[in-house]
Design a protein around this nucleic acid. Sequence first.
DNA 1: AACCTGACCAACCGCCAGCCT
DNA 2: GAGGCTGGCGGTTGGTCAGGT
Length: 237
Amino acid sequence: MGRPPCCDKANVKRGPWTAEEDAKILAYVASHGIGNWTLVPQKAGLNRCGKSCRLRWTNYLRPDLKHDNFTPQEEECIIELHKTIGSRWSLIAKQLPGRTDNDVKNYWNTKLKKKLVNMGIDPVTHKPFAQVFAEYGKISGLPIQNARNHICLPNNTTEISKQLPFSLRENYSTQKYTWDPKAQYQVIHEETLQTHSFSEVSPLISSATYFNPTVFSSSSSYASVQSQVQVNFTYDH
DNA sequence: AACCTGACCAACCGCCAGCCT
DNA sequence: GAGGCTGGCGGTTGGTCAGGT
């Protein structure tokens, strides 16, 4: 047998934390330090799961956290790191003192992704949309030079849709695709590229970062297979 | 004033490697 | 060694709020 469970999930409180609950965690950590989180609810007098307590402390209560807006430097750092290692939020957050992985993830999803899309850059590959679509055409067996036209031209529906991955055909045949970079990103990326083309993108990313010292073994968001990526984290602030 | 929509973000979910009994 | 829990992680959800109609 292993350890006893940390809590009875059916009988613990969930949802937003109150100031009183926050105070209990702060008081507990101040007197006992950070240790076994499964004991925290019981010792601090909280009807919460230990995991939930740890998350509250890590993401909100830690005294070293910043609660102000991200600076342009931090923004740039996130974009660069995401370009290199993908959505490894905890690793990115470690390069940004006072920020949590949750902060970085939320900021990326709500602000930076849109910002890149508005700039005509694909936030997953960090390449211009035109290049992404050209590569998409190459991977799908379409002529590289005009892959985007193969998607947006409405009067070759039958022939073109045969060349598209199955998941795209229905949308294509209803002329969902028009040449608007943002719309193309939303439709094509979400439905197809993530499963279809990134296995071909990942070797470029791996080789570009190959000679740097920190090693991560991960399933990168760029790759469909497990890969090892080496990255050097030296950023000037 | 009421409703709708989108942005934001705290919190939860589910998975996994490592650890404990 | 097996079974099961912990802690850490990335992805997702849902509540709240502001702005628009």
